[in-house]
Design a protein around this nucleic acid. Structure first.
Length: 274
DNA sequence: CCCCTATCCTGAGGGC
DNA sequence: TGCCCTCAGGATAGGG
C-alpha cells in the first residue's frame, strides 16, 4: 500500500525517467480509472504534450505537462506507475498506456482498481475534489513541532485516527503510523489531547525518522508495491511492528498486540508503548 | 466532531 | 483439486 515514501520513490524515479519526454499516444484500457475529464477527452488532451516535472503531494503524484496542466495519479492500494519498453508484454491489469517519444511507455497497472487518474489545472483538480484538501507535508519545514502540537492538542481523536486523516498531515498510512508510534513509544489508541509535550515531540520526530528511512530504502514492498522499474523496495525488512502482531517486540520481546483502531488493523507493543 | 461501517476490488490463504 | 469464506486497506459516503 503506497504511502508517502513509496510515492516519493516513484516521483523521484519518474522525474529522471520521463521529464523532457513527449507523450505521443495514450490508450485507456479501463475508462473508469480516469476520473477527469472523460477518458476519450483525456486521451486527446495529453497527446503531444511534454512532461516538464514530477511532484508529490501527500500520496498523490502530479506530472506537470508543458501546457501548464497536470496529470494526477493516486496509486490507491495496488497501483503501479511503470516505465518500460513500448513492446514489453502487457500484464493483466494494465489500465493505461502512454507511449513516449523514446519508444518507451509509461503504464498504469492496478489489480484492485482503488487508484485513480485525472488531468487538469491544479485549480480544476482541487475544485473538483479529485485532488482533495491535504494537510502538512511531514518532511517539509511547515511540519514544525509547533504546528504538530496545535493539531494534536485540538482533537479528541485517537493518535491513529488523527494521523490517518490526510487533511491534517498528508501522506501517512497504516504502515508508517504504526511504525512512528512504536518508535515514539506512544500507543496508537491514545487520545491526542492527552499526550504530554514530550510524547508529542517524540511522535513528531518519529514520523520524520520512519519516513526518511523508508525513502532511503525505496519504500516497503509488503506484497504489491513496486517502483517505476517494477523493482521492490527493501524497507519491509526494517518494519518493527507493522504486520508483526503476535510476534516478539524487537525492543523488549513482549508479544506485539494486534487490534483495530479507527477502522484499521493496528499493531503495537503493550510494554514499549504506553 | 468523531467513530464505525459499508463500499469499491482482487488475490491470497485457510478450512474442509 | 477446488470451492467457499475471510481478510487486506485508501478514500469516501452515510448513519449514529
Amino acid at each position: 500500500m503506497p504511502e508517502l515514501p513509496e510515492v516519493e520513490t516513484v516521483a523521484n524515479d519518474l522525474r529522471g525517467a520521463i521529464v523532457g519526454r513527449r507523450i505521443d499516444d495514450v490508450t485507456v484500457l479501463r475508462p473508469d480509472i480516469v476520473k477527469l475529464p472523460p477518458a476519450e477527452v483525456f486521451t486527446t488532451l495529453l497527446r503531444g504534450q511534454r512532461v516538464t516535472g514530477v511532484d508529490r503531494r501527500g500520496k498523490y503524484l502530479l506530472l506537470g505537462l508543458d501546457g501548464g496542466d497536470d496529470i494526477m495519479v493516486h496509486l490507491g492500494m495496488t497501483g503501479h506507475l511503470l516505465v518500460c519498453d513500448g513492446d514489453a508484454p502487457l500484464p493483466k491489469h494494465t489500465h493505461l498506456r502512454a507511449r513516449l517519444d523514446d519508444r518507451r511507455e509509461l503504464r498504469y497497472d492496478d489489480v484492485r482498481r482503488f487508484g485513480r487518474i485525472a488531468y487538469g489545472s491544479r485549480a480544476l483538480l482541487e475544485e473538483s475534489r479529485v485532488l482533495p484538501p491535504l494537510g502538512l507535508e511531514p518532511l517539509s519545514d511547515e511540519f514544525s513541532t509547533r504546528e504538530f502540537d496545535r493539531i494534536l492538542r485540538g482533537t479528541t481523536r485517537t493518535v491513529k485516527g488523527a494521523l490517518l486523516d490526510q487533511t491534517r498531515v498528508a501522506g501517512l498510512g497504516n504502515i508508517y503510523i504504526d511504525e512512528a508510534c512504536h518508535l515514539a513509544g506512544v500507543r496508537p489508541t491514545r487520545r491526542c489531547y492527552k499526550l504530554t509535550r514530550k510524547e508529542r515531540t517524540a511522535l513528531h520526530g518519529a514520523i520524520q525518522t520512519v519516513l526518511r528511512s523508508a525513502i532511503v530504502n525505496r519504500g516497503s514492498s509488503i506484497d504489491d508495491y513496486r517502483d517505476v522499474w517494477n523493482a521492490r523496495g527493501s524497507n519491509q525488512e526494517r518494519l518493527r511492528v507493522y504486520g508483526r502482531g503476535g510476534e516478539a517486540c524487537l525492543t523488549c520481546a513482549t508479544t506485539l498486540k494486534r487490534t483495530v483502531v479507527a477502522g484499521r488493523t493496528t499493531v503495537y507493543c503493550p510494554r514499549c508503548q504506553r
